[in-house]
Structures are given as C-alpha cells and as structure tokens.
Simulated scan of single mutants.
Amino acid sequence: MAAPEVTAIIPVFNDRQALERAIPESLVILSSITEHFEVIVAEDGSTDGSAEFVRGYEAKNPRVKLLHSDKRLGRGTALNRAIRQAQGSIVCYYDVDLATDMQHLSELIEKIRKGADVSTGSRLLPESDIHRTGGREIASRSYNFLVRCILGSRLFDHQCGFKAFNKQKILPLLPTIRSNHWFWDTELLVRAQRKGFVVTEFPVRWRAGKGTTVRLKDVFSMGSSILRLWWQIHVSED
C-alpha cells in the first residue's frame, strides 16, 4: 500500500455512539478525495467501549488505526500525539459528532494542496451556515472577538473543530503549544500566524452537537486562557 497523502484524525473521549457514524462516513468521503489516506482515532482514556469499537474496524480495514491512551491526556495532547504519528503529508482533524458538514472536507484538504500551511473552517464568516443556541452564539462571538483584539489574530473562528495542516510545517510548532485541552486550537492558530504561516479560513455549514452547553465556568476559563497566552507570548517568552 502506498504511503498516505492524507491523515484524518478524529479525537475521541467516550464517544462510542458517535463513532458508529463518524468512521464509515469518513471512509466514504476520504475515498472520494484521495486513494491514499488513513484515519487515526485519537482515543483519550475512554471508558465506554470506544477503543474496542475502533479495534473492530482496525481488524476489517487497515486504513483505520486506533491511538489509545489508558488515561485522559486532554484533547490538545491527544491531537499532538496523533499528528506526530500521522503518515500523511496533509493532516486534518474534525470533531467526532461531524458537526461541520463533511462535504467541506475536500475544500479543507485542497487548501493545503494549493499551498496553505493551515486551513480552518469558520462558523463566523458572513457566508457560514450555522444553527446553535443564542447562549453559545454570544459566548463564541465574544470569545473570538477577544482573541482578535488581545492576541492579534486575523481569523474570525478559532475553535471550529475542522482544521488541516501541512505536516512538515506544523511539526516544529507543536512543542511551543502549552495548552493540553480545548484552548489548543486557538493557541495553534495564534502561534502559526505569528510564525508567518499561510493560514486560510473559509465558511462552513455547521450544526451544534447534542448535549453541548456553555457554563459560567467555561466563560471564565476562556478569558483566563486568552490572557495567559498573551503573557506567554509577550512577557515570559521574550
């Protein structure tokens, strides 16, 4: 089998049910984009049978690979680990609930093929098509506004779980990322822009997954993470 051109990573924590749709749909969509691909399920200490489910797919299809952790590492650490082990020259990842329409996957990958170092879907561009509750919408727009103002990002949506990278360009950036959980996405995009990487953002169709809510402690965590990265970039790393 030829070396894969594309590695698709699906980060997973107790998402056994969502995997039943995510894996077969990934295989179908990726097959329409390239003959040479692999799917890595970055399973992060799940206790609901997610790992066992993926092992069943591994036995049937060599393109599906389980990257298991016995203990919870955090989403960011799990993604770092999977990117390092990816065989593809283009690495992408997306949320297991497939909240972003998978029909956008070809565009996400094509951006890298055409020279971008990072490509990312956006729920906050005028052309984006999204459905979510008012509370989440306000929190998301406020958060991304602060990232733009405080951290100097030129992007509009930093947390959309739908991104792709030129692996060779992104690997040296990974050791600089300190966040090991949800803020990883934002920190990577901010640091990539500061390094002068070509980062492209495009509108997507997105539907909120079930059971996702915004809590007061999440809002405080958002603000403190932004300020911590500002301090790291402008003070502690100078």
Rank of each mutant, 00 (worst) to 15 (best):
H104F: 10
V198G: 01
A86G: 07
L171E: 13
D70Y: 09
V190P: 01
I112N: 07
K111E: 14
E237W: 14
F37H: 11
V214K: 13
A8L: 15
R148S: 14
P175F: 14
F220R: 12
A139H: 13
V96L: 02
R207T: 13
K71V: 00
V96D: 01
M102E: 03
D129H: 11
S128Q: 10
L19Q: 12
P24Y: 08
V198R: 14
K210S: 07
E58L: 04
I130S: 03
H68I: 00
N80K: 08
D129L: 03
R84D: 01
Q85I: 03
R205I: 14
E127C: 08
I112A: 05
I9H: 04
A2Q: 12
I138T: 15
I177P: 01
R21D: 04
T176E: 14
K65Y: 00
S225L: 04
E43W: 03
L229K: 11
K114N: 11
M102A: 08
M1R: 04
R63I: 04
N144Q: 04
D95H: 00
L188N: 10
S225T: 04
R55L: 14
P126F: 15
T212Q: 09
R205N: 06
R207E: 15
R228S: 05
G161S: 13
H158Q: 09
F145N: 10
H68W: 08
G211I: 08
S46F: 04
E58F: 03
S153N: 11
L66K: 00
G196M: 08
P175D: 15
L227H: 04
R178C: 03
P11I: 02
S225N: 08
L66E: 03
R55A: 13
F13S: 12
I109Q: 06
E107K: 04
D101E: 11
I138V: 12
A86N: 03
V6C: 05
D70F: 06
P11Y: 03
I23F: 01
P126Y: 15
T176L: 12
D218V: 03
C160L: 09
R194H: 07
R191K: 11
L216D: 15
S179N: 11
V190Y: 05
A22C: 03
L227V: 14
T120N: 10
R178S: 09
S46G: 02
F162W: 05
R141D: 09
G56T: 00
